[in-house]
Design a protein around this nucleic acid. Structure first.
Lengths: 197, 197, 197, 197
DNA sequence: AATGAATGAGGATTCATTCAT
DNA sequence: GATGAATGAATCCTCATTCAT
């Protein structure tokens, strides 16, 4: 029997292609967690650390702090879009998913606030695009004659309003406030939950 | 190592005791301006500079960053209270003044957002008191049977909602959005303007 | 307000990974020099400057001001320990090395002073551990019936006493005073010199 | 019977001459307290506050931070001198008073340490004079043939040694250590207590 | 492609000292 | 003579970003 090489160094480690994608995903997940814990001003190093990668990797995937935040939001927006695109869906259901993200993610709230422009804070500028994607998704399911279909801005103003109401330390409390907000607007909202197949 | 003054230059003159009150006012005004330009996270040094005083003066008048913000908000809250306390007033008029401050001052928006608790950001803790003062002032003018008198939280949730809608680069645009928000809530609001005798 | 790099100048080059150990050593050496020149309250920035590194590097290697001092003292203590552990050694020889460090390093004196506790100054808390290590090292070579073996505290009190005597502008004068102190204590001390193989 | 003026404003208030002296005394007392609580690096403002006077008064009486410390020490030194000058006194008694001050006042310890020169710390330079006054007082009561009369420096080195031993959080513990130090030196010391008529 | 050290600007905070009142 | 506000230098500390390995 020949001796096996058990050296500590030569692990094949198919790293390279797949690792990159995995790292990116880990970063976005870490960013989501860190943002929800420390807010949007959390240090990038904390995100890299939580993702278990070096800071260099973060910069490889995202040119700057905005890009990180945007990547997180992009996922949220995509879920809203997918919900809106689903076969058997309606506005309340889409609003439910949207509301879920509002209660989940402080960052997401910031996004909607930033829809106009000139927010003085650290919120991204191309957040604008994301905001428009949300609007498109919702409007596709907005029935004629709906309460929010009257004036052009009403839909997004309503979203901003609900997001303004979403405060509080626990997700649960935030959800309760969000529901109250929709009620005050007289708009029906479906179950508040993440998108699921 | 102890501190030693090195430069031999003339120090810019000590304005004496009377300047104290003036300086405090200048600081609050400067803070208001700076906050509206850069948000609540603006460096304190920017506020001191804009007020035309040294950093030490800022720290003499306000122990920490929270105290500065609170001082700014306190003025706003007081105007709301005074409006509510006026002889010939009603809810719409108070809401009008409140809305004015929402459109004027990013900081004020932050305040209302902070009513719950535990926001991880730099939002004050004793902002809570201010929030309660606003609520008391409004509730004193809230007619029985009013749309916002149904559930206990509705009043402040509505405020938070409107504040969420108040975004945009110009005060004018912010006011337009605020009005739209009140309209969507079905709540009448009076002229949007600062308190005036 | 987030941080932004403004200047366009070339940054002084990143020496890469290997520099890390070198930098740490440089920092400890610089700290030793700075402490002896300005005392334990010297600004950390002075240490970083003398070490030829940015302030951030100092903070990377040492979480706080205590850690820097401790790192310096740790080296001294280790020399005492090594002397005590040497094959052909005796108490006078260990005391000689200890005394050397007392005359060399103001910081080291502070350490021994801190053995009790609660000094209100900037003296470390985990200096206590170092103090104990010194005691263990000495006690291992303390012959029964030695003048300092009578009461439990006598050994470390004697050290503190000698360290109290060690004042003066030149190392030479400090050594002379240290010798006088040992003489007054009736304790024999070997050559005052650093540990050497 | 005529009415007495009991107005709150017109108190004759012999202020002026006597107030000045009273303020100076208050400052020294405050300094003593503050030093013992926070160490010699305590902010001057704390001393003025504790004395109940403005900072300007402090500067009227003492040109700089050194002068304040020196004034405190001066009182201690004077007590030692008075003890030495008393009719029925001897070295142990003087050492007892000296030791009392060592255990009472961190500042006083610093003084003795500073006798040589070039102490890198914030200790005064004209502390030297005070140190010499202590030496003169002691030497006046130093019997020929005393253990500390052999070499010229022995007396003050012994003092420095004891002061080095005086560490610990409570005065009681510090006294115990001081006694142990004198014992190790083989020098008799009288009751450790402040000077009293 | 990843790592993580280094840079260094920026912002917070503290105090010695001066000086109008 | 006293008061206490103001100045502003100095120091601490944190992070965004770069880059050698």
């Amino acid at each position: 029997m020949t001796q096996h090489r058990v050296s500590e160094e030569r692990r094949p480690a198919n790293e390279g292609r797949k690792a990159a994608a995995r790292n990116r995903a880990a970063l976005v997940a870490a960013a989501r967690a860190v943002y929800s814990e420390y807010g949007l001003d959390a240090p990038l190093s904390a995100i890299a650390r939580r993702a278990g990668v070096g800071q260099g990797v973060l910069y490889r995937h995202f040119p700057d702090r905005e890009a990180v935040a945007t990547a997180v939001l992009e996922e949220n927006v995509r879920e809203v879009e997918r919900t809106a695109a689903a076969q058997d869906t309606d506005l309340p259901r889409v609003l439910g998913v949207l509301t879920w993200h509002l209660t989940e993610s402080a960052a997401f709230i910031g996004l909607l606030h930033a829809d106009g422009a000139g927010s003085p804070s650290s919120v991204p500028s191309y957040a604008h695009d994301l905001s428009e994607r949300v609007e498109r998704a919702l409007r596709a399911r907005l029935p004629d004659g709906h309460r929010l279909a009257a004036a052009d801005d009403d839909l997004m103003i309503a979203i901003a309003m609900v997001s303004g109401a979403v405060t509080g330390p626990t997700r649960d409390q935030r959800e309760r406030r969000a529901r109250a907000a929709w009620r005050l607007l007289g708009v029906e909202v479906g179950p508040v939950r993440p998108f699921a197949e």
